[in-house]
């Protein structure tokens, strides 16, 4: 039987910390099973009904937001419409290559061609553009660290 002091002492061992952390997280996630969860209908970033576009044989499914580039606005909502007044103008733009794929198969939306040049997601690049910048900088910093370590520790190792 461990005394309380011994248990506290174990908290100073770095090896045990990830285990303690994942245990705490697991307990919280288990509690989450008993929390009533239902989606608020008033969503800012709307999605079509599940399988709706697929059943319509829409080749852009599930990303079809309608609209014609520069003529008719696509269906995209913004939290602060004043900050993004040109929203929806180019969401429906497809590159020639994307058009080719779209015309020949009905699986365009779920293929790799849909992202990122195929369907321009204006939520990703316009209203929430700052998030996209941060996401790619996280990736860039991870590569900076990994490549520095690779160059200096793995390849030019002296000691």
């Amino acid at each position: 039987m461990k005394t309380l002091a011994e248990i506290w002492n174990n908290l100073a061992n770095p090896k045990l910390i990830p285990r303690l952390f994942s245990l705490t997280l697991a307990i919280i996630l288990l509690i989450g099973l008993f929390i009533p969860m239902n989606l608020n209908d008033n969503q800012l970033y709307v999605r079509p009904e599940i399988q709706e576009q697929i059943n319509e044989n829409n080749s852009l499914a599930p990303y079809d937001r309608g609209g014609i580039p520069l003529i008719e606005d696509a269906y995209v909502k913004a939290q602060y419409p004043n900050n993004s007044q040109n929203l929806g103008k180019i969401t429906s733009y497809l590159t020639p290559l994307a058009l080719l794929v779209k015309d020949n198969t009905i699986y365009f939306g779920t293929s790799i061609c849909a992202s990122p040049g195929g369907i321009l997601d204006e939520i990703l690049y316009y209203t929430r553009g700052f998030d996209t910048i941060l996401e790619s900088s996280i990736l860039m910093m991870a590569f900076v660290i990994a490549s520095w370590l690779g160059l200096n520790f793995t390849m030019r190792r002296e000691d």
């Binding site: 939290q79 900050n83 700052f130």
Partner: peptide, 13 residues
């Protein structure tokens, strides 16, 4: 405290 101002970056205010 009172809000001095906003820096609007699309939806991220």
């Amino acid at each position: 405290g009172e809000i001095f101002g906003f820096i609007p970056l699309g939806d991220i205010m």
